[in-house]
Design a protein around this nucleic acid. Structure first.
Length: 106
DNA sequence: CGTGTGACGCGGG
DNA sequence: CCCCGCGCCACAC
């Protein structure tokens, strides 16, 4: 496994229960703010094998990128099971549920 | 080494 | 705010 891939996996494992993190933020914390798409690739390749909490990764809009019938409902179900709420538009309040390493500094 | 991938992010209309 | 188009980048082949 490549170093960056390992870092991404590490970051995803750090996302706490009841919180979410955007693909871009995961990439940023892993060392490459421009490698958001890489996070997608890592989830595809190692999400299941590494038992990653893939459902805690959402897009920067606070919505789920997965489509209905293709994982959307499972992700939403898992997030709601952690107490995360969706509004009528299917969006998550990132100011309330978003997680970032920077929060540990203040 | 070149080409394709992919659950993205941002800017403009 | 929503929708569309383009750029982005590590990895697999």
């Amino acid at each position: 496994m490549q170093p960056f891939t390992a870092s991404v996996i590490d970051v995803i494992r750090e996302i706490p229960f009841g919180k979410v993190c955007s693909y871009g933020d995961v990439a940023d914390l892993a060392g490459n703010p421009r490698a958001a798409r890489q996070v997608v690739r890592v989830l595809h390749t190692y999400g299941e094998a590494e038992n990653l909490p893939w459902w805690r990764v959402v897009n920067s809009r606070g919505t789920l990128s997965m489509k209905p019938g293709c994982g959307y409902e499972e992700q939403r179900d898992r997030l709601e099971a952690e107490g995360i709420e969706f509004d009528a538009k299917g969006r998550i309040n990132l100011h309330e549920y978003g997680w970032s390493d920077e929060e540990h500094h203040g």
